[in-house]
């Protein structure tokens, strides 16, 4: 492949994922999750936060995705269930999510080809995340501090999304990691 690729596609190894639902009005929900995960729940729509190797993505007003290194999800789920009270739901979705990272000078173009969402830095600086249309599938896209983008796609669509990205990036030169 090109020495100076316009786009670098990095297929990341599986990670531990928990889908958390809960009611922010319930006393203690925020504190309990922060204690168990070590990350303050992002409350502002379309943002994500991380501390150490744990990241929490805002998915909706009552929904978050917690991502930890593979294998840690079961312990974290137990910890959360022990801490939380009242109305909540925790679902292990580690098997459902595939993680990709897209970087390179032409990464914006590939996103423009793939999604009607506005990933321009004015609208989508680092620390933003959004669930949106990606080609004919969907993806959670998160802006990273280094200017790259993490993509979380459903496993059954991962082959399609990978082929789509390879096709879209071809004209800019694609490197795979």
């Amino acid at each position: 492949m090109s020495d100076d690729p316009g786009v670098v596609l990095h297929a990341l190894s599986p990670r531990g994922c928990l889908n958390l639902r809960g009611d922010l009005r319930e006393a203690g929900f925020r504190n309990a999750t922060a204690t168990a995960t070590g990350v303050e729940l992002p409350l502002e729509p379309r943002t994500w936060r991380f501390a150490g190797d744990t990241a929490v993505y805002w998915l909706g007003p009552d929904e978050w995705l917690i991502v930890v290194p593979a294998g840690r999800e079961a312990d974290l789920e137990r910890g959360l269930r022990d801490t939380l009270a009242g109305s909540f739901s925790i679902v292990d979705t580690s098997g459902a999510n595939c993680f990709l990272n897209l970087s390179g000078p032409a990464v914006g173009r590939v996103l423009q080809k793939s999604s009607p969402y506005d990933f321009h830095p004015r609208n989508f600086p680092a620390g933003r995340c959004v669930q949106t249309v990606f080609a004919k599938a969907s993806a959670l896209v998160a802006g990273q501090a280094d200017g790259s983008f993490d993509l979380v796609v459903r496993r059954s669509y991962a082959d399609y999304v990978r082929l789509w990205i390879e096709d879209a990036a071809e004209e800019y030169g694609l490197a795979r990691r």
Partner: peptide
Amino acid sequence: GRDVRGFFDPERHTPMH
């Protein structure tokens, strides 16, 4: 656009595909 041939409709694959 590119929504032709294999991209016309995405294929979903199981882990055992």
